[in-house]
């Protein structure tokens, strides 16, 4: 199944959840949010939110600078 991840077309397994994706992307050490089709998906939904063909997914990284 193909999705867009950070602007690039990427093949993923069907039934992949956002939690799976986060672990594949090694986001453990990063403060991040995941956006799917211009909506931030709440963290509590990451384990159950599965991706669909053609989804546009972006990893949004927290920035602290001011």
């Amino acid at each position: 199944m193909k999705i867009w991840l950070n602007g690039e077309q990427t093949n993923i397994d069907s039934e992949l959840t956002l939690a799976d994706l986060a672990s594949q992307q090694n986001l453990d050490e990063v403060r991040y949010a995941i956006e799917v089709n211009e909506e931030i998906i709440p963290r509590s939904e990451h384990p159950t939110h599965t991706l669909n063909e053609g989804d546009k997914v972006e990893i949004v990284t927290a920035i602290g600078g001011g």
């Binding site: 990063v30 920035i63 600078g65």
Partner: peptide
């Protein structure tokens, strides 16, 4: 806190990364 987790690295700062 809904947006970002209150853990993880201290993150990049402008002194190191530039702005």
């Amino acid at each position: 806190r809904c947006l970002y987790q209150d853990d993880g690295s201290d993150g990049a700062n402008c002194a190191l990364e530039g702005v």
